[in-house]
Design a binder for these strands. Structure first.
Length: 827
RNA sequence: GCGAAAGUGGCGGAAUUGGCAGACGCGCUGGACUUAGGAUCCAGUGAGGUUAAACUCGUAGGGGUUCGAGUCCCCUCUUUCGCACCA
C-alpha cells in the first residue's frame, strides 16, 4: 500500500499558502536569514535540475525557519534574452506572451514541488516595472562615470547576431549557443568594472565561498605588477607605451611587437602607400579564429613594419614588428620584446633572425648567445645595462622603474586581464539602454520621469541581420529631451547579465514604484545569507553581481560589501554519466515522478544521492528506495499513531529494557548527527541517512504495544523525531505525520528536533583491541573504566592472548572510548 | 603546459580531530508471506580462505612517517574542472 502522497501534498501546499508561512515579514523580532537560489530562465517546463537546485534552497529555508529565523526565500525569472526570443519565433508568437505563459506554467510546477517561496516578491526581468529600475541604475552609473562608449573590435556571434563580453566567450565560442565568435568593429556601451578590479580581488568580506570560485575570479582578473614605459617612434613625437613585468630586461629589447589591431598599425594601414604584405597579414590575423590565435601552440608569425622606435633608456633603435601573438586587450597592447629573456620573443626572433642581447647573466652558468636553445627567464646578474650592471636582477626591477619615472619615460603600474564589461546587445528582447542620440547634443540620457523606455510590442521578431528595434520608426524617432531637435533612440539593449546583477536587492522591496528598492529594506535583508547556484556562473554572473553590488553600496543603497555571504555551487543531475539533455535523450520528467511517487520522494532522492555540491547520478532504483523509505515512515506512524500519541503524554521515568535504552541512545545519537549534518556541515545526504537509521532502530522494536509507560515514552519520542528530521527534505509527509501525532502547530514553528547529551553517553562501551594496528579482539567494559584496568583486561581477551604469544609488549595505548592499541616486537 | 579538486565494494556514497574501512541507500543471493505488488518481512552480501573459525589481502599505483594512515609527507598514474602566448 502506497501512502496517499497526492492528497497530502496538495493539502499542505494549500495550507502553507493560506497561512502565509513563506511570506517574509518586512519586520520581525527574529533575526533575518535570506536564502536565494539563482533564478531560472522561464522555459515553461520544470527541469530535473531545477528540482534538484531548488530542493537545496528549500531545505535550508525550512531548517532556518525551524531554527527561529525570519526567512526570505524569493523566486523570479530571468526572462529577457535570446532563448525567449527564439522560443517566441518557434511558437510563432511574441516573447511577451510566451514568457508570461511559461512563467504561469513554471509557477504551478514550483508549487507542486512544495517549495516554500515568497511569491508576493516575484520579479521577472522582462516586465517594465522591473527593467525600469535597471535603466535607472544604468543612468546612475553613467553619472558616476562608470559607463562609456567605445569603438573597437568586438566579439561577434553570428548566430546570435550580437556582441559578447570577453567573459562570455568560451573557447572561442559563444557561451550560450556555442557558435563561432569573430571580431567585428563596432561602437559599444561599457561598464567600467575595471574600476573595481582591485576590490573584486578581495574576498575577505564573504563568509563562506568555495575556494574554487574565488580562484577562478582571481585568475580571471589576473592582476600583475610592472611598469608602463613609453617608447617613441623614430623621427616623430608619437609615444608607444608598453607594459612589462620585467623592467630589469629593458636594455635587452631588440624589437617591439604590436598586434594588427593596434591603433598605430591601423593608422599605417590607412596610409596610401601602405605595404601590401602588411595589409594581407593584418587582415588574415584579425579574421583568424580567436581561439586558435590565442592558443599557445599557434605558430608565432609576423611582418616587419619598416618602422622603428627608440628605447628611451639607451637610445637603441628598435624594429617594430606586427605579430599574431600580442593581444590588443592586455596591458597597453604593445610589447617590448626581449628575446634573450622571454621564450615567446625568443621563438619569434629565431624565426625571423632578429638580433638578441643578453642583459641578465645566469650566475650558475654563463650564457652565450650562439649556444642558447631557449630564453633565460630566471633571475640573475644585470649586464649590458649601463649603470645597472652588476645588480641583482630582482633589485634592478625597482631601480630601473624608479629611474624611468625620474626621467618621465614611464611609471610603475598595475595591469589586469579583466576588461571592461561590454553590455550592448543588438537584440530586441532586452532592456533598452535609456539613451537618445541627438545630432546637436550628442548622447542624452532619457530623463527619469520618462523611464522606463518601454520595448515596443509591434516588432517582427526573428533572426534579422539588424536590430529589430531599427524597424519601429515611431519608437526610434524622438525629440531630444534637451533641445527638442529630431533625435534617435539608442537601439542596443542591455546584456541580460545586467538584469541579474541586482535582482537579489529588488526582492527586498519588489513593488517599489519610486526607486529600485528602499535602501532601508535592502540594508535589512542583504547580504544574501546563502546563495545557491551552478558553478557555470562562477565568473560571469557572480562577478558582475559583486560589481553592481559594490556600486550600489557606493551609492548608499546597500551597506554590505558583498552581495552573497555564503555560496553553494550545487552539482548537476546526470544520467548515464552525462548531463541530461534533450539531444542525448536522457532526460527525466520531474512532473511524471511527482504524479507517480510524489514531490517528497523526488526531493528525498535528490538530496540523499550525494552531497549538495556534487553531481547527482539519476537512478530509477534509487528513487524507489526513497519512495519505500517514506512509505515505511508512513506505515510506522500511521499504524501506531494512538500508541505514540499516548506515549508522548507520559514521562520516561521507570525501568527500561536494554532494548529500549538502546533505542533511546540511537534516537539521540541520530538527532545529534542530523543537527551537525544539517546546520554545520551542510551534508544533507548523511542527515537523511541518520533519519533512516533512526527509522530502522524504531522498526526493530517489534511489539511497542507491550512496552511499559516509561518505555513507551521513549518509543514515542523517537517516532515524533522523524517528522521533524524529514521536514527540510520531505515537508508534506512530515507535516501530515506531525498532525497525525496530534500537533496543533505547523512544523516550521516547532523548533528543531531536540536531543539530550546525557543520553549520548552509554553505560558500557565496546573497545577494540589492536596489535600493531591489526584488529585482534573486542571487549565490552563500563564507560568510566580506569585505563590501567582496561589495559589489563585487554591483554586477557582470548584472541589477544593467543596473538601475543611469542611477542614482547613495547607499549599499550588507550584511545578513550574507542580502542586499546598494543605495540609489540618479536621476542 | 600551469593551477585546483578528486580517485573507496557490482552502483550512489559514508568514515566530522590520525583510531573498528565500506554507515545509509540501491543492486544481488537465500528464505517467509500472499490482497501477486515498482508490495512487505527475515537473513546474508569487499576479495581470498575455512564445514565453521582463525587468518591473509583490501580505499588508483609505489615509497615514507606512526603503536595505528582512506585521512599526513614524497613520487607516479588517471579523471574532472579552470586557465592557457596576459608581456
Amino acid at each position: 500500500m502506497e501512502y496517499p502522497f497526492g492528497a497530502i501534498e496538495r493539502k499542505w501546499q494549500q495550507t502553507w499558502r493560506e497561512r502565509r508561512i513563506f511570506n517574509a515579514p518586512q519586520k520581525s523580532d527574529k533575526p533575518k536569514y535570506y536564502v536565494l537560489s539563482m533564478f531560472p530562465y522561464p522555459s515553461g517546463v520544470l527541469h530535473i535540475g531545477h528540482a534538484s537546485n531548488y530542493s537545496i534552497g528549500d531545505a535550508i529555508t525550512r531548517l532556518k525557519l525551524m531554527e527561529g529565523y525570519s526567512v526570505l526565500q524569493p523566486m523570479g525569472y530571468d526572462s529577457f534574452g535570446m532563448p525567449a526570443e527564439n522560443y517566441a519565433i518557434l511558437h510563432n508568437s511574441h516573447p511577451r506572451l510566451t514568457t508570461e505563459e511559461n512563467i504561469a506554467a513554471m509557477r504551478e510546477q514550483f508549487d507542486g514541488m512544495g517549495f516554500g517561496l515568497d511569491w508576493e516578491r516575484e520579479v521577472s526581468t522582462c516586465r517594465p516595472e522591473y527593467y525600469r529600475w535597471g535603466q535607472y541604475i544604468f543612468k546612475r552609473m553613467y553619472e558616476k562615470g562608470l559607463v562609456y562608449r567605445k569603438k573597437s573590435f568586438q566579439n561577434w556571434c553570428e548566430d546570435c547576431q550580437t556582441v559578447l563580453a570577453n567573459e562570455q566567450v568560451e573557447e572561442g565560442t559563444c557561451w550560450r549557443c556555442h557558435g563561432a565568435v569573430e571580431q567585428k568593429e563596432l561602437e559599444q556601451w561599457y561598464f567600467k568594472i575595471t574600476d573595481y578590479a582591485e576590490e573584486l580581488l578581495d574576498f575577505s568580506k564573504v563568509i563562506d565561498w568555495p575556494e574554487r570560485v574565488m580562484t577562478m575570479q582571481k585568475n580571471w582578473i589576473n592582476k600583475s605588477e610592472g611598469a608602463k614605459i613609453d617608447f617613441v617612434l623614430e623621427n616623430q613625437d608619437t609615444k608607444v607605451p608598453i607594459f612589462t613585468t620585467r623592467p630589469d630586461t629593458i636594455f635587452g629589447v631588440t624589437f617591439m611587437a604590436l598586434p594588427p589591431e593596434h591603433p598605430l598599425v591601423q593608422q599605417w594601414l590607412a596610409e596610401p602607400n601602405a605595404d601590401a604584405a602588411l595589409k594581407d597579414f593584418c587582415h588574415k590575423v584579425i579574421n583568424a579564429d580567436k581561439m586558435l590565435r590565442s592558443s599557445a601552440e599557434t605558430v608565432k608569425e609576423g611582418v616587419f613594419s619598416g618602422k622603428y622606435c627608440i628605447n628611451p633608456l639607451n637610445g637603441d633603435r628598435v624594429q617594430i614588428w606586427i605579430t599574431n601573438y600580442v593581444l590588443m586587450d592586455y596591458g597597453t597592447g604593445a610589447v617590448m620584446a626581449v628575446p634573450a629573456h622571454d621564450q615567446r620573443d625568443f621563438d619569434f626572433a629565431k624565426k625571423y633572425d632578429i638580433p638578441m642581447k643578453i642583459v641578465i647573466q645566469n650566475p650558475a652558468k654563463s650564457l652565450v648567445l650562439s649556444e642558447m636553445q631557449e630564453a633565460y627567464t630566471e633571475p640573475g646578474i644585470i649586464v649590458n645595462s649601463g649603470k645597472f650592471d652588476g645588480m641583482d636582477s630582482e633589485a634592478a626591477k625597482a631601480a630601473i622603474t624608479a629611474w624611468v619615472a625620474e626621467n618621465n619615460w614611464g611609471e610603475q603600474t598595475l595591469t589586469y586581464r579583466l576588461r571592461d564589461w561590454g553590455i550592448s546587445r543588438q537584440r530586441y528582447w532586452g532592456n533598452p539602454i535609456p539613451v537618445i542620440h541627438c545630432p546637436k547634443c550628442g548622447v542624452v540620457l532619457v530623463p527619469d520621469k520618462d523611464l522606463p523606455v518601454k520595448l515596443p510590442d509591434n516588432v517582427q521578431v526573428g533572426r534579422t541581420t539588424s536590430n529589430p528595434l531599427l524597424s519601429v520608426p515611431e519608437w526610434l524617432n524622438v525629440k531630444c529631451p534637451q533641445c527638442g531637435a529630431d533625435a534617435r533612440r539608442e537601439t542596443d539593449t542591455m546584456d541580460t547579465f545586467v538584469d541579474s546583477s541586482w535582482y537579489f536587492a529588488r526582492y527586498a522591496d519588489p513593488k517599489n514604484t519610486a526607486q529600485p528598492f528602499d535602501p532601508q529594506l535592502a540594508k535589512y535583508w542583504l547580504p544574501v545569507d546563502q546563495y545557491i547556484g551552478g558553478i557555470e556562473h562562477a565568473v560571469m554572473h557572480l562577478m558582475y553581481a559583486r560589481f553592481v553590488h559594490k556600486f550600489m553600496r557606493d551609492m548608499g543603497w546597500v551597506d554590505s560589501d558583498e552581495p552573497f555571504a555564503r555560496l553553494l555551487t550545487q552539482g548537476m543531475v546526470t544520467k548515464d554519466g552525462a548531463k541530461m539533455s534533450k539531444s542525448k535523450g536522457n532526460t527525466v520528467d520531474p512532473q511524471y515522478i511527482i504524479d507517480r511517487f510524489g514531490a517528497d520522494t523526488l526531493r528525498v532522492f535528490l538530496m540523499f544521492a550525494s552531497p549538495p555540491e556534487k553531481d547527482v547520478e539519476w537512478s530509477d532504483d534509487g528513487l524507489m528506495g526513497s519512495f519505500r523509505f517514506l512509505n515505511r515512515v508512513w506505515r510506522l506512524i500511521d499504524t501506531h499513531q494512538e500508541l505514540i500519541r499516548k506515549g508522548l503524554e507520559t514521562t520516561s521515568d521507570g525501568d527500561l529494557s536494554a532494548e529500549i535504552a538502546d533505542l533511546r541512545y540511537h534516537t539521540h545519537f541520530a538527532i545529534s548527527r542530523w543537527h551537525d549534518d544539517c546546520l554545520h556541515r551542510m551534508q544533507y545526504n548523511t542527515a537523511i541517512a541518520a533519519t533512516m537509521e533512526l527509522l530502522n532502530a524504531i522498526i526493530a522494536i517489534k511489539a511497542p504495544e507491550k512496552l511499559n509507560e516509561a518505555e513507551l515514552a521513549i518509543y514515542a519520542f523517537a517516532c515524533a523525531a522523524l517528522p521533524k528530521m524529514l521536514y527540510p527534505f520531505a515537508p508534506h509527509i512530515a507535516e501530515e505525520l506531525w498532525q497525525v501525532l496530534g500537533a496543533a502547530k505547523l512544523l516550521h514553528d516547532c523548533g528543531l528536533p531536540k536531543f539530550d547529551k546525557q543520553y549520548l553517553c552509554r553505560d558500557s562501551v565496546t573497545y577494540v583491541v589492536q596489535i600493531n594496528g591489526k584488529l585482534r579482539g573486542k571487549l565490552e567494559v563500563p564507560a568510566d573504566i580506569d585505563h590501567e584496568e582496561l589495559k589489563a583486561l585487554a591483554l586477557e581477551v582470548e584472541n589477544v592472548k593467543r596473538s601475543l604469544e611469542g611477542f614482547s609488549i613495547k607499549k599499550v595505548i588507550v584511545v578513550p572510548g574507542k580502542m586499546v592499541s598494543i605495540a609489540v616486537a618479536s621476542s
